[in-house]
Design a protein around this nucleic acid. Sequence first.
DNA 1: GCCAACGTTGGC
DNA 2: GCCAACGTTGGC
Length: 153
Amino acid sequence: MRYWLFKTEPDAFGINDLISRPEQTEHWDGVRNYQARNFLRDQIALGDQVFIYHSSCDEVGIAGVAEVVKAGYVDHTQFDPESKYYDPKSSQDKPRWYMVDVKFVRKFDRVLSLQSIKANPALADMQLVQKGNRLSVMPVEADEWNILLEMAG
DNA sequence: GCCAACGTTGGC
DNA sequence: GCCAACGTTGGC
C-alpha cells in the first residue's frame, strides 16, 4: 500500500464536494501531465491512501484523506469535445490520459496548512515543498504520511 | 534534437 | 494580479 497527494482547486472540486458525491466517491479526472499520468496509470493501486490537497484558494493545504477504490483506467473526458479536458490528439485505441476513483475517508478538523508543512524540518524533503513543484499527483513517503497525520491531530 | 515561444500552475 | 518555474509545442 502506498501514499499519495492529489491537488485540487476547491473552487472547482474540494473535499466537501467529494463528501457530497454518491458513495462519497468520485473519479479523479482531468489530469493532463505525463508524469502524473504515469502514476495514475501504473502505480496507484486499489487501497492506496491519498491526501486531498487544496490549492489556489484561501486555505492552502491538506484538507483530508481519501482512498483509492478503483485503480487506473482511461479518462473518458479526453474524448468528449464538450469537456474542458478534451484532447483532440488522443484516440480510443491509444488513450493518453488515465484516472482513478477515490472515496472519502476523513476530513481534517482544520486544513493542515502549507505554511505549517513548510515549517516542519522533518518534512523538508517532501516533494510538495520542493521549489517549482507543479505535479498534481505525487507520491508521499510513509514517514511523511505519518508525520502529517500526527500534525493534523 | 535543439531551443525559443508560449501556456499553465500555484503561492503570494 | 503578479511572476517564477516548469512543461509543451513546433520551426528549423
